[in-house]
Design a protein around this nucleic acid. Structure first.
Length: 753
DNA sequence: ATAATAACGAGA
DNA sequence: CTCGTTATTATC
């Protein structure tokens, strides 16, 4: 129901008139009278009776289009629960606005779809399942004397007029899921970890999602609908780019067999990753199941889109993204929901795409902050897709050049397996990486060379250009919040009490924690004992013209926020790009320069190091292999961990180190945070109403914009589900009391300053 | 928003 | 003790 009030976040039952009986199927949009006004909703399921005494009639069925897939309904509930949000908010993200004209238009490729026997069979199987589910619910439901259908006509008359007049009720809005699906997946992640364990409710011992039995990757799928996988035969799919990874062919094979293999994939430098994703998608389709692929931005989507067309052929998949416009967006949504295509690729909006008989979810570059949804309840695409894989019992692939702490946790808990290349393959493909100190200040000849380009960087670039190869220069974007670091050793300064980052309000101000607000007047660096702090300041962005002066006669191109280049030719040119906007060069770059790294590394964000690593690896991956002359120069101290990881091309080593450190400090994903933002009295009211789990740690308040404040709540991973429930209930108490002042509740807030 | 229901207080 | 009025609460 389209009422985003926490205390009304549950299904409501309505009677269905005889006239609506046929069209009132689960998943359709409906209009109902609710609290005196007409509201929109989705029909969740048909039940024979309701425990509610006096039911109203469904006002009308908006359209017979079943836009809310049962799988998505379950997923949406799980995501709402995980993020302490409302189902209606999640459904708004999951289902695009209706476009009546598009809905009425004939299917463009209807003939092809109708002729597909596999699709036909899938449809039948799904129909049977849906029917049984309804029966199951009806048997459980308490008997109730409900007024009959028939639009106001008396009982008997109605039954006479329409012999099969239904006496059904419709459950509108949400599935009556009795277990907490969030706990299921979290328990899976916790199963092998040392943190407290979430007790899985009895109802959750449902085999299909049993976390313990399915904690090992590549478990045969528990489904009678599909022939059991061939366990004994180890036929691997070969002849694809996945042959470069020891575990690759077996993963493809598992997908063809319809098994729920789950993997974290560290792509080789220079990898044509869209082609690899197309290959896993094709393998899943060969196995008779569907695929959802989520990438961070439109540029990545274009590449995946092209690769999918190449491998699957025309009209076999759709690309979903916001830029397409409302009607096109709805058209493509319908292509998936009507089972015309089995493969959907898209930006984060595609994470809820209704793909029938889902076999695989893929997320590329899960560290990109574009994967975090900015609308309530702020779900992250990686979490949505992994929850989806867990609930649907399908395969999952988390890929990237870099590896996030969350992906590392999936490996360490045994939820997923690693797909990485062997050492030799890695050596053959990696560019030669060298660190260099920033010696530019020492340049004798500042007029001839650009003032701030270190000599090694300059020499490397010149060499590549002379060889006729393009050079990529990565410069960070301006505007990162500077944080505070030790003036001696540049170690980021953290709060002695809660490990939050320290900030300096002014030049002479006492350093203060961004999380708990405590002043750290007597701060001493834990690494070197230094007592002086400095705020790191992003240096002035080097302009393309400055670089042009450094390399006279060479064309300089830029790719950044306003104009993003997809590709550049393989000729001598300097390409200046901000992170995430690096074009792919034909044949690879001869040299990649990573400049102004200090600004990246000292950002006032928990993920500064991880993010730096991600951006370096993504840029460095565009260089040629070292054997073909590919060079990477990173202007940073060679002893820093991210630099080390880049030199040896070991994203896994870095992620493991990072995760261990976060465990130590109580950072996500080792702990779970929630932030509450609002006016002080409102935040206090919510906290008073919420029964926070044991051991919940309150940090703050710190001031927030517009006269507001922010509180952080930290709990162990094992209590994460409890925390979300408590916050949702707290919000429900407040909304039931019609509390006027809003409080924004964010579980896993995108930025933890 | 609005309807039901509980709570309350004044006058019989 | 009843009736009329007002706060409270649930919203099929």
């Amino acid at each position: 129901m389209d009422v985003p009030l926490p205390h009304l976040d549950r299904p409501f039952d309505y009677l269905i008139s005889a006239a609506d009986d046929a069209v009132a199927q689960p998943g359709v949009r409906v209009k109902v009278r609710f609290a005196g006004q007409m509201v929109n909703g989705f029909l969740l399921e048909r039940v024979e009776s309701s425990t509610h005494a006096k039911l109203a009639y469904l006002d009308k069925v908006v359209s017979g289009e079943r836009v809310l897939d049962p799988e998505i309904a379950r997923l949406a509930r799980a995501i709402a629960d995980r993020y302490a949000g409302n189902l209606s908010d999640v459904l708004r993200l999951a289902i695009p606005p209706r476009h009546a004209r598009v809905e009425a238009q004939p299917e463009p490729a209807a003939a092809e779809a109708a002729g597909d026997p596999a699709a036909e069979a899938a449809r039948d199987a799904a129909a049977v399942a849906a029917h049984e589910a309804t029966v199951e619910v009806a048997r459980d439901a308490a008997a109730v004397a409900s007024p009959d259908a028939g639009c106001g006509v008396a009982d008997d008359a109605a039954r006479d007029a329409v012999p099969d007049a239904p006496r059904d009720a419709a459950r509108v809005v949400a599935a009556d899921i009795k277990r907490a699906p969030d706990a299921v997946r979290d328990a899976a992640l916790d199963a092998a970890s040392d943190t407290a364990h979430v007790p899985v409710s009895e109802a959750a011992s449902d085999v299909a999602t049993d976390p313990v039995r399915h904690a090992i990757a590549e478990v045969p799928r528990d489904s009678g609908a599909r022939p059991a996988p061939d366990v004994g035969v180890e036929t691997a799919v070969s002849g694809t780019g996945w042959d470069d990874y020891p575990a690759g062919p077996a993963f493809l094979h598992a997908l063809e067999q319809g098994r729920d293999a789950r993997a974290v994939w560290s792509a080789l430098p220079g990898e044509d990753w869209p082609a690899r994703i197309a290959e896993v998608a094709a393998a899943t389709v060969r196995g008779g199941r569907g695929v959802v692929v989520v990438v961070a931005d439109a540029r990545d989507l274009d590449r995946v889109d092209r690769a999918l067309t190449k491998v699957l052929g025309e009209g076999r998949h759709v690309a979903l993204h916001a830029a397409a416009g409302p009607s096109e967006r709805y058209r493509r949504f319908l292509a998936a929901s009507r089972r015309r295509v089995r493969v959907v690729a898209g930006t984060r909006a595609a994470m809820f795409a209704p793909v029938a008989d889902l076999g695989l979810v893929v997320i590329w570059d899960d560290g990109d902050d574009l994967h975090a949804e900015p609308r309530a309840p702020y779900p992250h695409a990686r979490e949505v897709l992994l929850t989806r894989a867990q609930l649907a019992g399908c395969a999952a692939l988390v890929g990237g050049f870099a590896r996030t702490g969350e992906a590392q946790l999936l490996l360490e808990t045994g939820w997923a397996k690693e797909i990485v290349a062997g050492r030799d393959m890695l050596r053959a493909r990696s560019p030669a990486v060298a660190p260099t100190g920033d010696d530019s200040q020492l340049a004798r000849d500042p007029g001839a060379v650009t003032a701030r380009l270190p000599s090694l960087a300059w020499q490397t670039a010149r060499q590549a250009l002379q060889g006729g190869a393009p050079v990529l220069v990565q410069v960070p974007r301006r505007g990162y919040l500077p944080s505070v670091a030790c003036a001696e050793c540049r170690m980021p300064a953290r709060c002695p009490h809660c490990s939050g980052p320290l900030g300096l309000a002014g030049a002479r101000a006492v350093p203060t924690c961004h999380w708990c607000g405590r002043a750290a007047a007597a701060y001493a660096c834990p690494a070197c004992g230094g007592r002086r702090l400095r705020a790191s300041v992003t240096g002035a962005r080097r302009t393309a013209e400055e670089l042009g002066r450094a390399f006279p006669g060479v064309p300089v191109r830029t790719s950044g926020r306003d104009e993003v280049l997809d590709t550049v030719p393989g000729d001598a040119a300097v390409v200046v790009a901000t992170p995430g906007a690096e074009p792919v060069a034909e044949g690879g770059y001869g040299a990649v320069l990573l400049l102004d790294t200090w600004a990246l590394l000292t950002r006032a964000d928990l993920r500064a190091a991880e993010e730096t690593m991600r951006r370096w690896l993504s840029a460095a991956a565009l260089a040629r292999p070292g054997a073909a002359g590919g060079r990477v120069v990173v202007v940073a101290d060679g002893s820093l961990a991210p630099v080390q990881a880049l030199l040896r091309w070991e994203p896994g080593w870095f992620a493991a180190r990072e995760l261990a450190e976060r465990r130590e400090l109580g950072f996500p994903p080792a702990a779970r945070f929630a932030s509450l933002t609002g006016r002080a009295e409102a935040v206090a009211e919510l906290l008073a109403a919420a029964r926070l789990p044991q051991g919940a740690e309150l940090l703050g308040p710190v001031p927030a914009p517009e006269d507001q404040e922010r509180m952080l709540v930290r709990v162990s991973r094992g209590r994460a589900a409890e925390l979300a429930r408590a916050l949702h209930e707290g919000a429900a108490v407040r909304s039931a009391k019609k509390a006027a002042l809003p409080v924004r509740v964010q579980v896993d807030p995108a930025e933890l300053l």
